[in-house]
Design a protein around this nucleic acid. Structure first.
Lengths: 231, 231
DNA sequence: ACCTGAACACCGTTCAAGT
DNA sequence: ACCTGAACACCGTTCAAGT
C-alpha cells in the first residue's frame, strides 16, 4: 500500500484541489511512463519533468528509484485486486481459480512492460511468489480456498502451482508484446537461418501465438489436476 | 555466438599467450561479475577495472552495454548447449525431454542472477521464446523431436509448452535465490502480518520450497500430457 | 593495433538555500 | 511546508591522442 517513507509523512489534507505533488500521483505517473517508454527510460529527472517539477522534489515522497519501481509493482497488484476481488462471490473453487487466472492475465496484458518487474523484482518476503506478490491478494486467495474446504497444506500447494503457471504463461506473453528499444536490432535476416533448416521451415508456426487459447487450455489442465489431487 | 560488431573484427591470432583483451574474455568476466554482484552493479567502468583496463577499451570488442548483456545471455545458452547436447544420444523422447529440462534447470541454478535476463531480455526473433533463446539449441531440439517421430506442428507445440514450463518454474526458483541488494529491506516484521492471519499462520509452509520435487512432478505431468496428446 | 585522457550529456542523491 | 540550485560521485559513450 504505497512505499514506506522513513518517517512521519503526515498528510493533513492537501489545502485545496491544488496541483500538489503526492506519492500516489508520482507512482501512477511512473507506471504510465513505463507503460509507454519502458523501464529503462524511466529516470527521476524525466519523471520529475513529466510532473512539472525538478527530480529532487520527488524525494520528499519516494525514498529512491528502487522503491519507486517497487511502488509501481504494488500499484499493478492493487489494480489486480480491483479486477479480481471487488464485490465478487464465487460459485465454486473452479470458477474462482478461473476468474483469478483471467484477472491476472488481464492485469499483465494491460501492463506488458511492467509485468517483467512484477515477475523479477526480488521481494522482501519468501512466501510471496511472483507474480502474486500482494499480501492482501494472497490473503484473500487463501481465504477463498479455505471457504471451499481446502486445508492449509493444499491451499499452499495450489498457490504455488498457480504462481508458477501464471509466471510462465504471462511472462512469455508479455515478453512478446514488449518491443525492443529503437532501433530494433535488425529483424534477423533469412540468411542467418541457413544453418538452422528446421527453424527456418517452422519459423511461421513458431511465431504464431495463440496465447489466449494456450492459456485457457493449460489452465483447464491445472484445474483438473487440482480436482484429481494429482497436483 | 558472440555479439556482432559493426565491422571487420578480424582476428589474426593473438601474438602470444598475452594478457590481451578479447570479446569472449570480456563476456565471461561480465557473467562472473553478474553472478557475484548482480546485473545492476555491472557497469562498463567496473568491468573494465576488473579486467585491468579502462572502460573505453571494451568498446573495441563490444558495441555497448546492452549488447554486453545480450552476450552474457548467449554465453549461458552456450553453456546450456554444452550441458545438454554434448555427445549424447537418447533412448526415447521422454528421456530426451527429461534430460533437457534438467539441463536447463542446472544452467539456471548455476546462474540465478543471470537467469532473469535470459527470461526477460526482449529477443530479436519472435520464434525464440525465453528461456530457450539459442538458435542452435532450438534447432537441435526440433531435430531430436523429429527423430522420434514428432511432426512439425506437434514439435512446435511441445517447444512452446516446454518453454512456458521452464520459464515459470525456473524463474520462480532463481528469484528465490537472488538476494536483495544490501541492505536487505527489513525482513518484514511479524506485526506487518497482523491483518493477514492466514498468511501469518501459513508463512512457514509458504516459505518452504521443494523446488526440485515440484519441478520433477510437474515435468512428469507435462510429459504425460504430451504422451496423451492432450497437450 | 590497441589503449587512454579528456570530454559530453546524463544519471541518482544530498543538502543548504530559497519562497 | 514544499520546491529548487548547486554540487557530488558516478554513469555510457565518443574521439582525438598517445604508444
Amino acid at each position: 500500500m504505497g512505499v514506506d517513507m522513513p518517517e512521519g509523512t503526515k498528510d493533513p489534507a492537501p489545502p485545496v484541489a491544488r496541483r500538489t505533488l503526492d506519492q500516489s500521483t508520482i507512482l501512477r505517473e511512473a507506471a504510465r511512463f513505463i507503460d509507454t517508454h519502458g523501464r529503462d527510460r524511466l529516470t527521476m529527472r524525466r519523471l520529475g519533468a513529466e510532473l512539472g517539477v525538478e527530480a529532487m522534489a520527488l524525494y520528499r515522497y519516494v525514498p529512491g528509484r528502487d522503491q519507486l519501481l517497487d511502488g509501481v509493482v504494488e500499484l499493478v497488484m492493487d489494480e489486480l485486486y480491483e479486477i479480481t476481488m471487488t464485490g465478487r462471490r464465487f460459485e465454486s473453487w473452479q470458477s474462482y481459480l478461473e476468474q483469478m487466472a483471467h484477472g491476472v492475465r488481464t492485469a499483465a496484458v494491460r501492463h506488458p512492460r511492467i509485468f517483467p518487474l512484477v515477475a523479477t523484482r526480488p521481494s522482501a518476503a519468501p512466501w510471496l511468489r511472483p507474480p502474486l506478490r500482494s499480501l492482501r491478494w494472497v490473503e484473500a486467495f487463501l481465504d477463498q480456498l479455505a471457504s471451499f474446504g481446502f486445508d492449509a497444506e493444499r491451499s499452499v500447494q495450489v498457490y504455488r502451482s498457480f504462481a508458477t503457471f501464471l509466471l510462465g504463461h504471462l511472462l512469455l506473453e508479455t515478453a512478446t508484446y514488449d518491443e525492443r528499444p529503437d532501433p530494433p536490432p535488425a529483424p534477423l535476416e533469412p540468411d542467418d537461418l541457413a544453418e538452422y533448416p528446421r527453424i527456418a521451415r517452422l519459423s511461421d508456426e513458431l511465431s504464431e501465438a495463440e496465447f489466449a487459447e494456450e492459456f485457457d487450455d493449460a489452465l483447464e489442465d491445472l484445474i483438473n489436476r487440482v480436482a484429481l489431487e494429482r497436483l
